[in-house]
Simulated scan of single mutants.
Amino acid sequence: MRRLLIPMAIVCLCGLATTIGTTRAIPRQASLSGHADIVNAQGQKIGTATIHPSGSGTRIEVEVSQLPPGTHGIHIHTVGKCEGPAFASAGTHFNPTSKKHGKDNPDGPHSGDLLNIEVGADGTGKASLLDANATLGEGPNSLFHEGGSALVIHEKADDYKTDPSGNSGARIACGVIQAGGH
């Protein structure tokens, strides 16, 4: 009976090796995702963002609370640091292609420009945002570049055309974008 078990074990191991080899052949970008814990100027967590590849770019799902009601600009910035209270440590907008700010600007947009987020009277907001100019894989448009990137929420609405930040005002919340799920 032992003679029958040994060949079966070898067959099973060969099948496993084939499966492992197939798994490694999946493109790296397809398995990438990201997340960010969004904090306010006092460093308190007020929200989250999950980031996934989308057929036409990168999808960012944002949920926040404790923000002033109204419309707020939200952008990806070039440095993965969120030091309050002003969040200047997050750097400028993510812009590897050296464009002007805004989807309505004939010389735009930045790769980190996103649509505004609406915050209700209760201080909460939720948005599903698409960035067609950012990726999660390798290359210059990757949010996982050296130095990292951050998601920044501004005090006012983005006008989608005024360089460099759409007249969106001060930075009121920030989250460092990190690889992996949350």
Results as ranks from 00 to 15, higher is better:
Ala30Gly: 00
Glu63Arg: 14
Glu61Arg: 14
His35Tyr: 08
Ser33His: 12
Thr50Met: 10
Gln29Leu: 00
Thr50Gln: 14
Gly47Ser: 07
Glu61Ala: 15
Ile60Arg: 15
Ala36Lys: 01
Glu61Gly: 06
Ile38Asn: 03
Ala25Arg: 11
Pro53Gly: 12
Arg28Pro: 01
Ser33Leu: 11
Glu61Leu: 11
Asn40Ala: 02
Ala25Met: 14
Gly57Asp: 06
Ala41Phe: 07
Ile46Gly: 06
Pro53Arg: 09
Gln44Asp: 05
Gly47Asp: 09
Ile51Glu: 03
Ile46Asp: 01
Lys45Ser: 03
Gly57Ala: 03
Ile26Trp: 09
Ser54Leu: 09
Ile26Glu: 09
Ala36His: 03
Ser56Val: 14
Gln42Glu: 13
Val62Asp: 09
Gln29Lys: 05
Ala49Asp: 05
Asn40Met: 04
Ile26Leu: 12
His52Trp: 09
Lys45Trp: 00
Ala25Lys: 08
Ala41Lys: 12
Pro27Tyr: 11
Gln42Ser: 11
Leu32Ile: 10
Ile38His: 06
Gln42Gly: 07
Ile26Cys: 04
Leu32Tyr: 09
Gly43Val: 00
Glu61Phe: 10
Ile60Lys: 10
Ser56Arg: 14
Glu63Met: 13
Ala49Thr: 08
Gly34Ser: 06
Gly34Asp: 08
Val39Cys: 00
Thr48Cys: 01
Ile60Gln: 15
Thr50Leu: 13
Ala36Phe: 03
Ser56Leu: 14
Val39Asp: 01
Ile38Glu: 03
Ile46Val: 12
Pro53Leu: 11
Glu61Gln: 15
Ala30Met: 09
Ile51Arg: 05
Thr48Tyr: 04
Ala36Met: 01
Val39Lys: 09
Ser31Cys: 11
Ser54Asp: 15
Ser31Ala: 15
Val62Ile: 15
